[in-house]
């Protein structure tokens, strides 16, 4: 069995290797980011890819550019996450089975929902439960579902509507979300970045918030919609500016 670990934190890599080696004999390779992972999977055949969701080197460099307002939304590469590896496996028809291996930071929340709901990833293991990795890998190899009970909480509940029908429902609204995530806060600047008129932004704000409330019923329903949406996007910019999400939902 060949396993590719896509992880940039040494301690997590060690934990994963120890858990997997204890359970079974496996040839394990480690790469520290999605680009290297995709190249490696193209060149060699792996049975399982253990994929972290966010990578510090990718995020730090991108965040610096974002804060300085140097993110262009037309063309050019956006933020890279573990979703890129899952997308490449599906798009290139690779035989590798993905296992999401994620920690608990809030900025991964929508990525996890996206991976399950849109990309159909059914095997997820929490970093805090590395002892469960062999079970997760076995489930991935058998094509069955395995999700640590804690990660099962990422699934969309009945009282909320899925991502596809809310945040991802309209390309025009997604452009506005991305413009705000890129650091634009004024209607005029958001409009310029999203390629629409400022009046369109003003009119869209209530609609954007109502869609957000369908996805997250706990989000504040009062107050200025622009301010609330900008706050939301500031906490979740990694998702709205994700390169894979843009590739799948332009």
């Amino acid at each position: 069995m060949r396993i590719l670990i896509v992880e940039d934190e040494g301690v997590s890599v060690e934990a994963a290797i120890n858990a997997l080696r204890t359970a079974a004999s496996a040839a394990i390779d480690v790469v520290s980011g999605p680009f290297e992972a995709i190249e490696k999977m193209k060149a060699e055949s792996y049975d399982v890819a253990l994929v972290d969701m966010l990578f510090r080197t990718e995020s730090d460099e991108f965040e610096t550019r974002r804060r300085l307002g140097r993110i262009g939304l037309d063309g050019g590469q956006l933020h890279q996450s573990g979703l890129a590896v899952l997308h490449a496996i599906a798009k290139l028809g690779l035989p590798t089975r993905p296992v999401i291996w994620s920690g608990g930071a809030p900025n991964r929340r929508i990525h996890m929902i996206f991976a399950h709901e849109v990309m159909g990833c059914r095997v997820m293991c929490a970093k805090e439960a590395s002892g469960d990795l062999p079970r997760a890998v076995a489930a991935a190899l058998q094509g069955s579902e395995y999700m640590h009970p804690v990660l099962g909480m990422y699934l969309t509940p009945d009282y909320a509507r899925p991502l596809k029908e809310t945040l991802l429902a309209s390309p025009a609204r997604l452009r506005i979300w991305r413009a705000m995530a890129s650091g634009q806060h004024q209607h005029k600047a958001i409009a310029k970045s999203a390629g629409v008129k400022p009046s369109t932004i003003r009119k869209s704000m209530d609609d954007l918030r109502s869609k957000l409330l369908e996805f997250d019923p706990g989000y504040p329903a009062n107050g200025s919609p622009s301010t609330e949406l900008i706050r939301y996007v500031a906490q979740n910019w990694e998702f709205f500016l994700d390169d894979t999400v843009r590739a799948m939902f332009p």
Binding site: A126, P149, V150, M153
Partner: peptide
């Protein structure tokens, strides 16, 4: 929920957990 669960770690067995999605 996750943070609270990890506090008790191996001392808890979750027989059922809620779906929470993007709720805040």
């Amino acid at each position: 929920f996750k943070n609270t669960y990890w506090l008790f770690g191996g001392q808890l067995t979750l027989l059922s957990t809620p779906r929470l999605g993007g709720l805040t």
